[in-house]
Design a binder for these strands. Structure first.
Lengths: 154, 154
DNA sequence: ACAGTTAAGGTCAGTAATAGTCAAAGAAAG
DNA sequence: CTTTCTTTGACTATTACTGACCTTAACTGT
């Protein structure tokens, strides 16, 4: 199945897809009510799944008539974007950054779910074999694999 | 008979077989409970029996709603040789060894001349960015790239 | 205008639910 | 007897979820 957070995430993404303009306005209280949870759960989902790194901008206003707007930003064409993401990988990469980048690439369709899983698995496996410099190895491996994928598909 | 680890391994493989899509999601705590052992025993089994080398990818998530997913990725028969070569790559790899392996893979037609150049270039590029542990990185990168190539072309 | 009320949303720290790591003890194999 | 594989458990890390308390904006009556 999946957690409540996963379901709320999916729900918001579905709304975004059917919105026509990649943005959706929601009521925190209403959404929390629909999912039978506390309002702050919505903040949790937004904070963990709809980050800028993953391509989302979240704006909100308090008070009467308040709202939360989630915008899915799409920049350049996908390949350019992928290359930029690749460039943004520094000499070190945490596990979380790796996840965010993979999620983003999968999102824009540069890699398939299967490729995403493969890359994640490979990186994890390799990183698991060493004790020092895990972040450095992660960065190198991801760059190498993505570079290969992009090169061989273009 | 076999050890506990063997039984757990067999159990997971059985689940995989009857899964239809070569992947299965399990709960570490639940499985440990079923086999009356400590949870970390499951990690041991996964680490020793469900490695990439043997054709498995293991993904997991901690926290509430956490899980462990085991995916079995199948490689074709005519790539067995390549897989064996892959296995033979140790934890360190000199430049010379790298060349030898690439040459052999190109010879037996597992990678094309273009892929050979690509891999060599990527490895060189990455290895050039660090000062220590070049041999370790070379081994990791080659394993990763070859595994990816073999996987995505089978 | 002003003050009070109502109607949003935000923060943060704590609890619970999972899984991961590592080293040491125990068992099996050579 | 030595080495390698298995098993355990204490400690750590991560993710999800909740609730009490805080902030902001609009509305309302005088």
């Amino acid at each position: 199945m999946g957690t409540l957070a996963d379901h709320i995430e999916a729900h918001i993404k579905k709304m975004l897809k059917s919105s026509g303009d990649n943005s959706v306005e929601l009521s925190r209280a209403q959404l929390a009510n629909d999912f039978s949870c506390v309002p702050s759960q919505i903040n949790y989902v937004l904070a963990t799944r709809f980050t800028l790194e993953r391509g989302y901008i979240v704006e909100s206003r308090r008070g009467g008539g308040g709202y939360i707007r989630v915008v899915h930003v799409q920049v350049e064409d996908d390949l350019t974007h992928a290359v930029n993401l690749l460039r943004s990988i520094g000499s070190q990469l945490s596990e979380r950054q790796l996840e965010n980048i993979l999620a983003r690439l999968k999102d824009i369709g540069v890699i398939s779910p299967r490729e995403c899983r493969l890359v994640r698995g490979i990186v994890q496996q390799e990183v698991g074999t060493i004790n020092q410099g895990k972040d450095v190895l992660r960065a190198s491996l991801l760059r190498a694999l993505l570079f290969y994928i992009i090169e061989s598909e273009s």
